[in-house]
Each structure stands twice: as structure tokens, then as C-alpha cells.
Amino acid sequence: MRAMLLESSIRLNTHAAAGVTDVCIRAERLGKVIDGRMVLKDLSFEVARGMIVSVLGANGAGKSTLLKLLATLTSPTSGRLELFGRPPDGARSRARIGLVGHETMLYRDLTALENVMLTARLHGVPEARARALTMLDRLGVAERAGDAVRNLSRGTAQRVAIARALVHGPDLLIADEPFTGLDVGSCGVVERVFSEFRARGGTIVMSGHDVEQALRLGEHVLLLMEGRLASSEASHRIEASNLRKRIGGRE
């Protein structure tokens, strides 16, 4: 009797756990109005845990606004957003999100290490210094750890920004054009870091312009056109040239 009870409660637990964690992002008819202009209209989609999703679209299609919404930096005007199975609840949700922005979001007068350590400490990461150094090393910028960010090249600073976004071990990484300004070598490093992150169960939503890269890295592509979701398809079912035409056709 006791064993049976135990068993059923375990099953219930795993069931509940699966329900909570399987879907990382659920968007229902999300809309965003900025200054009377509909920037995003009626976006509905789901992102499963452990996926890499690319958001593509022409300039001004609403990619950055969508990513800001998902990062809970702004709130939707209409519709519903759920992160990790519940509506965003301020600090608790933010603790599980890493953000790589359009800008580097780094303090130019602090060193790379100080920047990453600051984020780690704000998140209450134990042994912040060691953890920050590990992250910088993983992104191949450990030897520049002591340099002020103002002296770093755009590509190096971008890699520091990615280290900063991942230092607290988030479950969801939101990256707005993370590959801009990176040379081929650094692109490889960042792609490898992203794959490792995903392999450990992390979810990535990123925007970009490079169609081949989006198809290669991400399992799923969301195509935005003038604020609407034009298509939401698995990468392996998408023709690169076709996709490029659809993005380019509106530019």
C-alpha cells in the first residue's frame, strides 16, 4: 500500500515536472503597440525546452521588440506570455534568463572580468570570480580579462557580452544578433558555446541576418514580416534560398 502510494506520487511528480518544463516559452496572440504603431501583431508560438530558435525578418520587422518582450524588459500590450510554464514574475523569471543585446550592455570603464563578475554577483553566483574566469575562457577571451572594455574590439567585447549573459547559468538565452561583429573564428567559438548550452538543456532564442547560419544552428525558424508571424517551421523543412527571398522581398 505504502509502496503504491509512493509510486503514484512519483509519477504525479514527474508528470507535473514535465508539464512545467517542456515548454519554455508560450506566446498567445502577443501584440505590442509603441506610440500608436503596432510593432507586433498577434504572435502565437511555443518554444520547447532545449531548442534553438532563430527569429528572422527584414529590418523593422519587430525582431528586437519580440526579443525584448521575451526577456521581460517590456510588457506586451495585448496577449499573454508564459515563461517556464507561468506568467513572468519579475525578478524570479529574470534570474533564469540571459540576455545578449543589440548593444554590448557592458560598462566601458570596467574590465571584462569586472563586468562579468558584477553580473555573477548580482545573481548571487558563488565564487563569482572563478565562474567569471571560466566563462571568459570558454569564449576564448580569458587573456583579455584584465583589459577595460573600452580597449576591446567590437568582436571581443561581443564575446565578453555573451560570457556575461551566461555567467549565472540561465535556462533561457535571448540573443539579439549575437554574431554581428564577430570574425569567422569567433563565430565558431560562439556557435560551440551555444551548442554546449543547449546540450545541457538550455533554450536559445536568437535573431540574425545570416539565413544559412540560422538554419544550421537552430532547429526552428520564426519568420517575422511587418510584426506578424509569417511562418514558424522546423529548419530541416526550409529551403535557404526560398527563405532569403521571403525576407529580402519585403526590404
Binding site: 503597440v33 500608436g36 504603431r37 503596432m38 500590450t77 495585448s78
Partner: peptide, 16 residues
């Protein structure tokens, strides 16, 4: 005047 500019961009009224 708001209604006029909003009608042009397809939004009506205020927002909650």
C-alpha cells in the same frame, strides 16, 4: 486628434 492618427495605423482607443 488621437483617434484620427490611430485610425490611420489601425489602432483604436487606449491600451490597457
Amino acid at each position: 486628434s488621437h483617434k484620427k492618427s490611430h485610425d490611420a495605423s489601425g489602432v483604436t482607443g487606449g491600451m490597457a
